[in-house]
């Protein structure tokens, strides 16, 4: 069976994608899946060559036929999302629930599929990659995440690979829930800031709810030793292993500006060594 491992963070900007890209560069036969569909970034470093692009339509959106609409205002009255303004529907506000269609006395409203993003199947210098782009203002990223994961797993099966590495999205909401449901392991990239800790706690709580084991990487750990110790203590109390501590070093940013992963940019750097050890720990945990 294909194992899915997601790199997540809770807080944005902790270095999640940089770490995920480094782990990919260190793996062999791993398929990548960028599930941060709201703000996908992995492709910037991996420069995928898109092989196939498909429309993603998840939800429905209501549409009023202005020829039939008598502007009675019933839909406006019943719509809980402020989307119905007969004879028009605000497609950004519409949740696709179908209440307006249900109550319209003139049958002037229909529900149509909404194209809310694109799904891509690509090839990169590190192997196949599944990724997507959600159009601005579109919701339901959870379903697109699920589609990216499914594509990732099928790419892995096709390439006889047994691992999909997922770059997850920040937060703890719908896309993250869709990312971690049913995966084998999650790697949390955090930083020793108060907000980093706050968000990591919420993410770990989410993982426990979904029975997903987690490992923690502390990025920029030397920015605050006090907070790093807090993170380590918290992880110990919750049975989560801290597998790496990465020092604060502008080389991480420089490698990104050079559009390279850390192992490519600085193969002999201390940080690459730390990431290599973290990668081995992850593989060990999966094999268990």
């Amino acid at each position: 069976m294909v194992s899915e491992i997601a790199v997540i963070s809770g807080k944005g900007g902790t270095g999640k994608t940089t770490v995920a890209a480094a782990l990919i560069a260190l793996s062999e036969d791993t398929v990548m899946a960028d599930c941060d569909v709201d703000a996908p970034d992995l492709h910037i470093l991996l420069k995928p060559d898109v092989k196939r692009k498909s429309d993603f339509s998840s939800s429905k959106v209501a549409e009023i036929d202005p020829e039939i609409c008598i502007e009675c205002g019933l839909c406006e009255d019943k719509c809980r999302f402020g989307a119905a303004h007969p004879p028009e529907i605000d497609p950004i506000a519409c949740e696709g629930c179908g209440v307006c269609k249900l109550i319209c006395p003139e049958k002037a409203i229909s529900m149509r599929d909404r194209v809310s993003g694109y799904l891509y199947e690509s090839e990169t210098r590190f192997g196949p990659m599944a990724h997507a782009r959600l159009l601005a203002g579109e919701g339901n990223s959870g379903k697109l995440v699920t589609e990216v994961r499914n594509l990732g797993v099928s790419l892995a099966e096709r390439n006889k690979s047994n691992m999909v590495l997922i770059d997850g999205s920040p937060g703890i909401g719908c896309p993250v829930i869709a990312t971690v449901t049913g995966i084998q392991l999650s790697v949390i990239v955090t930083e020793p800031t108060l907000s980093g800790i706050h968000d990591m706690n919420r993410v770990i709580e989410l993982l426990q709810r979904f029975n997903v084991p987690g490992l923690v990487i502390i990025n920029k750990y030397d920015l605050s030793m006090e907070n790093t110790k807090k993170i380590e203590k918290f992880c110990r109390q919750n049975g989560v292993d801290v597998i790496a501590r990465i020092p604060f070093n502008p080389i991480m940013t420089r490698s990104m500006v050079a559009l390279q992963t850390m192992p490519e940019h600085a193969p002999n750097h201390e940080i690459t060594g730390i990431l290599r050890e973290a990668h081995q720990e992850i593989v060990k945990k999966i094999e268990k």
């Binding site: 970034d41 920040p170 500006v257």
Partner: peptide, 27 residues
């Protein structure tokens, strides 16, 4: 909130001015 999904649009609506914070990296 970060990103460009519906919670962000919900937040931005009615604003008089938007400050977009970025960092000078490719991401």
């Amino acid at each position: 909130p970060p990103g460009t999904a519906c919670p962000v649009i919900e937040t931005m609506q009615e604003s008089d001015y938007l400050l977009l914070v970025t960092e000078p990296t490719p991401f």
